[in-house]
Simulated assay, not measured.
Amino acid sequence: MTTATVSPMSGTERYLVIGGAGFLGSYIAQALVDRGEKYVAVYDLNKPGESDIIDGVQYFCGDILNEQQLLACLKSTSATVVFHTVSPVHGLQESVYYRINVEGTRTILLACEKSPVKAFVFTSSASVVSTGQNISGLNEKQVTIPDGKYEAYTYTKGLAEKMSLEHNDPYGMKVAALRPCGMIGPRDRQAMWRLAETYQKNQHKYQMGDNTNLVDYSYVGNVADAHLLAADRLAGSASSSNAVAGQVFFITDGKPRPYWDFPRMAFKLLGDDGKGITTLPYVLCVFMAFLSEVAAKLFGGPPSFPMFIVKLATLEQYFNIDKARTLLGYEPRVSFEEGVRMMVEWWKKQGEREHIEMLESKRRLRR
């Protein structure tokens, strides 16, 4: 695996990746080890599976809402650079997002301020600026986090981003926030699992909207590179840290494409011939989502076809990454096409087996 450029400070910092057993977090930990860092630790609710354990990484299990566990980990690792990558998946109850994104981030920040942490990189999301309207190529100054709540995940992520930046201290812990777009790559246990299930159920011949809306994607390793670049500058000289501290950065592959290009490419690699696609009109999708959300309110639980998914598939959402290129020196290494290919290859070799084992485990628990 090609990694980010070796930092001139390599070997002098001590790194802690909170959420490092997750998708992006594991790539950050791997990139640090690959470039020769000797002190890399992960703090996560669960230890990763055997196949995902990274040699040279120290693993700590704990809850981000438990300040004492965090403080113990920070003390044990003597971490000077912290990455906060924890993020719940979409489709959960609102209370989960407030607890993890808001309360969890607050607890992490307080623990870091009581420790010798000098650089803190928060993983936000490009979706924090979403309002249900098209966004076409805007930069960090042209679009801001809305005051109102569009959707629970994005709203609470936005609150956590603001909170993190408020803890930026010119004389203490320097903070930067990165806003990645939708990430793809091996070990993706969310989007890839949904795509594979859609394909296996023969539902892949349908699409919402006419596929003219452009969106951003990025290979997860590229996003990990951006995190290392931000951390290096925050922990570096006064001039480099001052230019980045307190800043937010959109992170994408810099090449927006129609929304359905990603699933169509994945379906093709899974064996689809690409023919016979049925386009569901936007108005019909909105009506179906409305009925789904009404049913959810009547009978409880999350909607099976939320309006958020319709918006996600039909809105134009892509961003300008010139700021990341200029201040971080960020440049995507791996192309979208290569990222999708590697992701599907991983699924065929390992991911599908994991998915089957997970479903079997759930069935046994229900018996």
Rank of each mutant, 00 (worst) to 15 (best):
R106V: 01
F336A: 01
E331P: 00
R14A: 07
G185N: 08
E13Y: 08
P281C: 06
D169W: 11
R341G: 01
A111N: 09
C181L: 09
V102W: 06
R35Y: 03
D169N: 15
N213K: 10
P88T: 08
R106W: 12
Y217F: 15
P332G: 05
K75H: 12
T80M: 07
T105Y: 06
E337Q: 14
L359N: 05
V286D: 01
V244F: 04
G185T: 09
D322F: 03
E337K: 13
N202V: 04
Y59T: 00
R333V: 05
A126Q: 10
Q69S: 08
D273P: 02
F290M: 07
S7T: 10
F122D: 00
V6D: 00
P306Q: 07
C61D: 11
K174D: 00
P116E: 04
L32G: 01
E360G: 06
Y98I: 01
I54R: 06
E166G: 00
E161A: 11
C285N: 13
R99D: 09
E140Q: 10
Y153Q: 02
Y206R: 12
G132P: 03
V143P: 03
N202R: 15
C112W: 10
S304R: 14
V223D: 03
F319K: 08
D253Q: 05
C285W: 08
M183H: 09
D216A: 01
T123H: 11
E360P: 00
H90Q: 05
P88G: 05
G276Y: 14
G91W: 15
S26K: 07
E360Y: 11
F267E: 06
T198I: 14
A266E: 01
L269R: 15
V223G: 04
E113H: 12
E94K: 15
